[in-house]
Structure formats: structure tokens, C-alpha cells
Amino acid sequence: MSLGDDGYGGGQGGYDDDRHVTRTRLPEGEVDPYAPTRRGSGRSGRSGRPSSRNLITVVGVVVLLIAAIAFANRGDGSGSSDDSGGGANQRPAGSQATAPTGTKPVDGRTGGIASGFAHSEQGAQSAAANFAVALGGDGMFKKDSRHAIVDAIHTPDAAPKLQGQLDQAYSTDFLKNVGLQADGSAPKGMTFVSRTVPVGSKTTSYGGDDATVEVWCTGLVGLAGQGSTKPVTQTWFTITQKLRWENDDWKIVSSSQKQGPAPVGGDDRASGADEIANAVSGYGGFTYAR
């Protein structure tokens, strides 16, 4: 998990650096003819990956991260909730693609996070995608920025309780296991990476003022730097958000997270620590619009 414009913290462009905001719109079904062809050999390894000992350590870190965020976002203490509206508002998940609609991306900002989403099903999906980026960013690992993120994207009723849960989840011991200092900062000479990239979204229920949206994501997490024992690795997970239209915008009532779906790993060469650190600091994130 694993919540600049996508990371909300140092090394990713900062909260208000609009130079790094990128917006993309690809026609549905468009395929990049220059994309590399993946081999279907089913190999799980690839050139340049860390040793098996380091890989086991990284897996442990990722599991801890997912467990912490899942625990903190349980809402009613069971990992999910049923307050998004029921009965006639519920509907089975569809196969509708995440495609451009012609609706302009939002241009509002609340605490560096996109805001002012449309009061529609499309707006709910856009909000959920951008909220997933915020919840998966490195800003969640520092108390002050974490509180600002939670207040910005949750309902006033949900935010206070979640703040306390998150403060417990992001404990000193947890931060140490991730490789960070007690205040959430990276050790000297290291760059901490925690970035979430939505791959697609779908609405599983919609009732006008209530919506449930699933966002399938890939993410990067780890420490980039010479001698890092927790190198940056890729994760795959799905975030389910229960949203409510409140104060003229979509806000999170509760959310939960699960691992996958994860594709077979490719044969890309793993980049060096400096290359990864430079990429994280040099490339900004996206504002996602349905």
C-alpha cells in the first residue's frame, strides 16, 4: 500500500508544485505500438533483482504496510462497512472500461489534493482514484502531512476517528521496519519512495449522494540509495472506498484494501538506486479524471 500531487511529501514535487501535474486522456482501446512485448514464460525472477534475503525482507515490509493501512481504514472495525446506501442503490459490478468522457479534470485543490469533483458517477470514480494516490503517498508517513491528507479527503465524522487509528498504525516501530526515522523521514543519503498509480476504477454501487468505488492500483515502495536493504519494489492492490457527497464534494466515509490482482512480472532490468531516486524527484504525478 499500500494513500507533489501524487506523493504529498518531499521528493515528489511538493504539495503546490503545479509544474509536475500531468493529465492524460487516452482513447478507449488505444494500444501503444511501441510497448515491449512481455514473455509468457512464467518466470518470477528478472535480471538485476535484489538477493533472495533482501527480497524476503521487502516482502515483509510490504505486508506490514498493507496491514497497517488496512487496519487504520477499517471504519467500523471489521474491515468494511455498509453505510453507502443499500437496496435499490446496490448493483453488481459492471465491465465498463475506464475511458475518457470529455469531462475536464478538476482544477480545485484542498491541501494539495484534487477537489471539486462532479456530482456524478464519473466524479465519484475520479475522486476515488485521486484519493487512492493520496493514501498511498509518502506524506502518510509523517504525522502533520498525514493529518492534512485525512482531513482533506474524509468526511468530518470519519476523519477524527481515523486520525487516532493511523497514528497508532504508523508507530515508531512500524516506521523503523519500513526503514524510516521516528519522524517518518528517510535516513541520510536515502530517498523514501511510496507512490500509488491507479490502473482502473469501477463503481459497484451508486445512489446519488453515496457511492462505492473500487480502484485497482500498482505502487512503488522502498528506500532508494546506495546500500539500501529495502530497495524499491512494485506492489499491486485494490482499494474499495465508500464515498458520500458532502459539502459539495465527494469524501471518504470508509475504505479497505486487499492485495492484487497482480500480473506476472516482466523481464525489465532493475534500475540502480540513483536512477530510481532521480526519477521519483524528477517526475510529478497525475490528476486523475474519469
Rank of each mutant, 00 (worst) to 15 (best):
S228M: 04
S44W: 07
T57H: 06
Q165T: 11
R39C: 08
W236R: 08
A211W: 10
S171K: 13
A148H: 05
N54E: 14
E28S: 14
K161I: 12
G102L: 03
T204H: 04
I149F: 04
R290D: 04
Y34V: 02
A129E: 10
K242F: 10
K104E: 13
A148G: 03
D209R: 11
P36H: 10
A68G: 15
V62N: 09
G207C: 01
P198V: 06
V150W: 07
D17W: 00
R23K: 07
S281E: 12
I56D: 09
F174L: 05
F286A: 15
G85Y: 06
D267K: 00
G7D: 13
T212R: 12
T24K: 12
G7C: 11
T240Q: 09
F71N: 05
S205F: 09
A35Y: 06
G42F: 01
G260T: 00
D274R: 14
S254Q: 14
I56V: 10
H154W: 13
G227I: 01
Q181T: 08
T287P: 04
R195L: 05
G4L: 02
S145K: 05
Y34K: 15
T204I: 14
G265Q: 02
S185P: 00
N89V: 04
G164I: 15
K176M: 11
P160C: 06
V253L: 11
Y170E: 06
G284R: 02
M1F: 04
P231N: 05
N177W: 07
V215F: 09
S95G: 11
K142R: 08
V178L: 08
P261T: 01
K251Y: 15
A67E: 10
G10L: 14
V199E: 12
A114S: 13
D83G: 12
T57E: 11
T287H: 13
Y206C: 02
T155G: 04
E30W: 15
G9T: 05
R49H: 00
T212H: 02
R19V: 12
G265S: 10
T238S: 01
T238F: 04
S271R: 04
D18P: 15
N247C: 01
Q241N: 10
K242D: 13
A68Q: 15
G225I: 01
G136E: 02
S2L: 13
S51L: 02
F141N: 05
Y8F: 11
K230Q: 09
V221M: 08
G77D: 12
G136C: 01
E121Q: 08
G4E: 03
H154I: 03
A186K: 00
T196K: 06
A128M: 05
K230D: 05
T229Q: 15
L3R: 13
Y206D: 03
G208K: 03
P198Y: 00
G282M: 02
S84T: 14
D82P: 07
I69T: 08
R38H: 03
E246N: 06
V106M: 08
A262F: 09
R109D: 12
D268H: 02
D209K: 08
T103N: 07
D6G: 15
K176T: 14
V133A: 14
G139K: 06
I252C: 02
G137F: 02
